[in-house]
Design a protein around this nucleic acid. Structure first.
Length: 156
DNA sequence: GCCAACGTTGGC
DNA sequence: GCCAACGTTGGC
């Protein structure tokens, strides 16, 4: 079995925050409509992979906590529902275009680790989320970077 | 609210 | 297959 991977996944806290995940315990990550992000979920995510839960479009934006992949990729049923915001008529049940994974809550950081703090950290230079206009909603993260950010979130 | 950057669409 | 137009993301 390949070793666990680490990820960063963005969510707008107004639609789904780390507190929502804490309340729910787990959730399905529906609504991803970007091929690169889908491929990460479909091809690379394994049960047990750890995820930095990132609040985007927030004040301030940053990493709010940690989640864990609890179910491998399966068809995103929100694409089949004409009433759903993320409905995609090109995706059929017989041949689904879009996939999702399930995430379960692991921990909420003692404090939000802001995007600015990530930028200021000397060892996080290649972290993808720091790149200008990096819009990808699911990004791979190096283990060393994951550990640094987790530690930042555990300090007051 | 602005707008740069980027992915997708569709005309040719 | 090119590329302009368009829609979306997301920091500021």
């Amino acid at each position: 079995m390949a070793s666990a991977r680490y990820w960063l996944m963005k969510s707008e806290p107004e639609s789904y925050s780390i507190d929502d995940l804490k309340r729910d315990g787990k959730t399905h990550w529906d609504g991803v409509r970007n091929y690169q992000a889908r491929n990460f979920m479909r091809d690379d995510m394994q049960v047990g992979d750890l995820v930095l839960f990132y609040h985007s479009n927030a004040e301030p934006p940053g990493v709010a906590g940690i989640a864990q992949v609890s179910k491998k990729a399966y068809p995103d049923f929100s694409a089949f529902d004409p009433k759903d915001k993320h409905y995609d008529p090109k995706s059929s049940k017989a041949n689904p275009t879009w996939m999702m994974v399930d995430l379960e809550f692991v921990e909420k950081f003692l404090r939000l680790v802001s995007l600015q703090e990530l930028r200021d950290h000397p060892k996080l230079g290649t972290l993808l989320v720091l790149k200008r206009a990096q819009r990808l909603s699911i990004q791979p993260v190096e283990k060393a970077h994951f550990e640094i950010i987790r530690k930042m979130g555990k300090k007051g």
